[in-house]
Design a protein around this nucleic acid. Structure first.
Lengths: 144, 144
DNA sequence: TAGCAACTGTTGCTATGGCAACTATTGTTT
DNA sequence: AAACAATAGTTGCCATAGCAACAGTTGCTA
């Protein structure tokens, strides 16, 4: 490994790309009056796939801090999209699941997200996708 | 482009990798008592390279919102690492530059960052770096 | 079984991100 | 010159990120 790329701004590039993606998604949500944020969407998507999870699981699945989960869920509960349900056997645990309105929201926003993902990848191939995945996974694994 | 990767979580992977990187950097800074955040470091690095810039330029160079720049600079000024200087000809403009302490801080933290970058890339090649750069740049360019 | 460790989730605090509204200044137009 | 538009930066607001401290619950162990 040469000096060159060690000092090159990969951190910066990751950050800039992610910000642009997040921005584009948010503006599309706003323009279509979906009344959710990008991260709220990520939790909804996850809850749709897992049906019934705890804060802890959700945090692991989404790479988010558990405190962040706690607060985003609070917002989603206020919007009536998520329901909390106490575990009968372990009173520390709270199960989370989408309400019927939450499922509606998922179905409503899903195609928008699908289209946006297509746009981001429009000039790239499946091999590129595999490459990106491999490199990011490797970086992730390299970090202590 | 098939259905497969459109629905795959590249957004999530970017986010997760960046968070892990940021976290690792911050913990290293904290452990070595550098008394700065990752984003404060990014501004210091940029100011070191450009010597004398405005908020606007800094925002463009770092892909940050100008309001965010304004607030981070405020913190760096309080820490005595950055100095504000009004433009003589255009009184709207404020030039920013590192103080001697700011230059010290840059030199002090630089090698730490250099090592961390090496660690992130340790099992990857320069070709991988070029690939990542190409793919991220393409995604960036694809987004409206 | 009493005490302690581990676990689940919440709250407080500070930092960053982004939008809108604002002040102050400069440039343009009529 | 007066009115208006454009520019530079700040402040208010809300959302996300992460650390520390906390409360309540459960499990383990001496």
């Amino acid at each position: 490994m040469t000096d060159t790329f060690v000092s090159n701004p990969s951190f910066f590039k990751l950050d800039a790309t992610l910000k642009k993606l997040r921005n584009y998604w948010q503006k599309t949500f706003d323009a279509q009056q979906k009344d959710i944020t990008v991260d709220q969407w990520l939790l909804i998507e996850n809850l749709y796939k897992h049906k019934k999870t705890t804060h802890n699981e959700l945090a692991r699945n989404t790479s988010k801090d558990i405190t962040t989960i706690s607060r985003i869920i609070e917002l989603l509960v206020k919007k009536g999209l998520v329901k909390r349900e106490a575990d009968v056997y372990d009173r520390r645990k709270v199960y989370l699941q989408l309400t019927p309105e939450g499922v509606e929201k998922y179905k409503d926003v899903k195609s928008l997200v699908y289209d946006m993902r297509k746009i981001g990848w429009k000039t790239l191939t499946e091999a590129d996708y595999a490459e990106l995945t491999r490199i990011l996974d490797t970086i992730y694994a390299n970090i202590p």
